[in-house]
Amino acid sequence: MITVDSLTKTYGAFRAVDDVTFTARPGRVTGFLGPNGAGKSTSMRVMVGLTPPTSGSATVCGRRFADLPNPGREIGVLLDASAQHAGRTGREILTIAQRTMGLPKSRVDEMIAQVSLTPSEADRRVRNYSLGMRQRLGIATALLGEPEVLILDEPANGLDPAGIRWMRDLLRGYADQGATVLLSSHLLHEIEVVADDLVVIGNGRIVAQGTKAELLASAGTLVRTRDVPGLTTALATAGVAHAPSAAAGGSDALRVEADTEVVGSIALDARIALLELRAAEGAGLEEMFLELTAAEQRETTTRGEAA
């Protein structure tokens, strides 16, 4: 159980995390989703006591992280797989963590096997590791103490497709055994596959949260046509809310707050040919997500008016 309450972190005038409140519950995978620089990593650093919050609080297992007697045994943390001494071997990094936590020596070899590092890779210095290998080592460090809470920042970065699949199964398995899993990502699709609950953050604020099913259901209909102005007029005449959508990857799509049957008959009455008509599962979320990214002006989306 992770409880974040009215968490705010400011750097001068910049509000990196702005009044963030959410709960990650046991037995569920909670996806912490947001574009780069949204405040995910800062929030996670506050949760584990590496960054002092400006106001608000975060507790893990009902206690402040700093009050945990042996945090590695209760909470597995991976914030940045590259944040390791480059001159140590993978095995040495695990051994240091194993000794700090007071675990039997055999745990090191068990974890090396569990994250599919070969013994010779484990004896290599981390300087020579690929990002994927560092990620596996970081996950091994996080799982070493058999924690009941996992806090993982972008754990799929650098993993190959098989590795991502492995990671997903691993997190699912942990949650099914009753663990609390919080993982962040800037990729909606990556998190959609594994998460039960979603917390979406943009510019330091939570913009949506709930179960994945709810967030994906609240999206209406996605419709594509070559005659966007005609369909827009027809929908406006019928009094149905709609908005241009970039979710289909082009500028010919609209997201409509009505079910497919209503939209289909409006189009039929207006004699407009449709290219595609479907329930916009997740399109609303994706829309919001792209808008967040565009608002930050780091990328240009396919929507001309969003830039």
């Binding site: 055994q177 009753g178 979406v200 949506a208 709930g210 967030l215 609303g284 919001m288 608002a295």
Partner: peptide, 19 residues
């Protein structure tokens, strides 16, 4: 900035298999 949210209230906790 127009980041309007489709905010959904936090649902009641579903039953979970607790260790």
């Amino acid at each position: 900035m127009s980041t309007t949210a489709t905010t959904v209230a936090v649902p009641p906790s579903p039953p979970v298999s607790r260790r």
